[in-house]
Design a protein around this nucleic acid. Structure first.
Lengths: 127, 127
DNA sequence: CTTGACTTTTGCCAATTGGCAAATTATACT
DNA sequence: AGTATAATTTGCCAATTGGCAAAAGTCAAG
């Protein structure tokens, strides 16, 4: 019902995605992180924005590096790089093999971070 | 009267030290950072604890690296930058299927740009 | 000493965060 | 079906953040 819940919410989706992938319930994550399940739920659906203190608490239980989450939350910059999008979004549907090969050499947490950065860059009108 | 102001306040002292060294007045720093001078003053004397958003705003005008300030504030443990060698750093050699799926929906030029971003992040100094 | 300009601090306030407990919704188990 | 159990969401609330404007403190020049 509420207004700006879904919009502009990357972080929540990423957090939830990671939580259900592990998998954990909100209560379990709450137990591991020391953050109340209600608060976690609201963060995931974008009704609350997590403070740095909270982000830090949930990083490890979710398997994130702390700096990663800070970047995803927009607390740390995903350095001033412009993803130029010259030809508007026609997607090949294919993953470039070179890209796949290089990415596969990174830990999965890094792979996911890259994804998070990409989604942020795509959503930013201007930075 | 005011109790826990000075004690346990490293951050405030560091911030003030840096500000007066530059030198800047609270108002000037306020103008440059977009944070009110009263709030800045309270942060310096430990009456308020800066949120990540505020920390980010004052980092540049004070000549701090953002991650540095986060570390000083206790938001990050000791070293900050997100990407490389977080933990049992062995690369899986596998590309996370979720990552692959999302990336494959991007134009190949964007996929390659992502790789470029990753390589830049990995080349950044790690402390 | 007094004025005037500047800097810092304080008083108050709206907005937000985050927790607890109750209510609701989903998931099993007979 | 119904009922117990687990999971999520909601209602309410204390505590904190951060801004604005007024008060207090500082300091140089006349």
């Amino acid at each position: 019902m509420n207004n700006n819940s879904k919009s502009n919410n990357h972080l929540g989706r990423i957090l939830k995605q990671q939580r259900v992938t592990i998998p954990l319930t909100l209560q379990e994550l709450a137990a591991k992180s020391g953050v109340s399940p209600s608060h976690l739920g609201r963060i995931e659906r974008g009704e609350r924005f997590p403070s740095a203190r909270i982000l830090r608490k949930i990083a490890k239980p979710l398997g994130f590096d702390e700096g990663e989450l800070f970047t995803l939350a927009g607390y740390l910059p995903s350095r001033s790089l412009s993803v130029s999008e010259p030809e508007p979004g026609y997607s090949s549907g294919q993953l470039d093999p070179y890209v796949a090969r290089v990415l596969a050499q990174e830990p999965i947490s890094v792979q996911r971070t890259v994804l998070g950065i990409l989604s942020i860059l795509k959503s930013l009108p201007r930075a």
